[in-house]
Amino acid sequence: MNKSRLYSIIKGVLISEKTTRINAFNTYAFSVLPNADKTEIKKAVEEIFKVKVKSVCTLNVQGKMKATGRHLGRRQDWKKAYVTLMPGQSLDSTNLQGE
């Protein structure tokens, strides 16, 4: 697989109340490309963060309808990936910066 493709799959790390709770279970949330599959996400996380991945769960998030004054708009749909690491592996704040 092309290295530039691997580095473009992971858009960013998601940080929220829920993601900080699941970090206790060695699981991290990422925003990923909508056309990326689980094997590509696994390879990308292993390559970028130098960790071993146990499993990947993905879900498509539907964009919300938003009103700006009289006009209605819609946010863009996006894809979220929950990545569980092998026991003993972790992502600390220095790993989350990427390379």
Rank of each mutant, 00 (worst) to 15 (best):
Q76E: 15
I48W: 00
A36W: 03
A44I: 08
I41K: 02
C57H: 04
K42T: 09
S55R: 06
T58W: 09
V45M: 09
L59I: 10
K54H: 06
E47A: 05
D77K: 11
R75G: 07
K38S: 11
Q76K: 14
G73D: 08
A36L: 08
A44Y: 08
T39W: 11
K52H: 03
H71G: 04
M65C: 12
K52V: 03
E40G: 13
T68C: 06
Q62G: 06
Q76N: 10
K66C: 05
Q76T: 14
R74C: 10
E46D: 10
K64P: 00
A67T: 12
H71F: 07
I48D: 03
Q76V: 15
V53F: 00
F49R: 02
N35W: 05
I48K: 04
K38A: 14
M65K: 15
D77M: 12
R75V: 08
N35Y: 11
K54W: 01
H71Q: 14
Q62V: 13
T58V: 12
V53I: 07
K64S: 08
Q62F: 05
D77G: 09
N60Y: 05
K42E: 11
K66R: 13
A36D: 03
K42Q: 13
R74F: 03
R75S: 09
M65D: 10
V61E: 13
K52P: 01
G63P: 01
G69K: 12
Q62T: 10
E47N: 06
T39K: 15
G63L: 06
R70G: 13
M65T: 14
T58S: 03
K54Y: 03
K54I: 03
C57I: 04
G63Q: 07
V61D: 06
G69S: 12
F49L: 05
R74A: 02
L59Y: 08
K43F: 15
L59F: 06
A44G: 08
T68P: 00
S55F: 05
R70S: 08
R75P: 00
K52D: 06
S55T: 04
N60T: 13
V53N: 00
D37C: 03
M65N: 13
N60R: 12
V56P: 00
M65P: 00
T68W: 12
V61Y: 09
T39L: 15
T58G: 05
G73T: 14
V61P: 01
H71E: 14
V56S: 04
Q62A: 12
L59A: 12
A44C: 09
N60A: 14
G63K: 12
E46S: 09
N35H: 13
V51K: 02
R75D: 10
A67R: 15
A67V: 11
E47S: 11
E40D: 14
I48G: 02
R74E: 01
V45Y: 07
D37Y: 11
H71M: 08
V51D: 07
V61S: 07
F49C: 01
K50N: 12
G69Q: 05
K43T: 15
T39F: 14
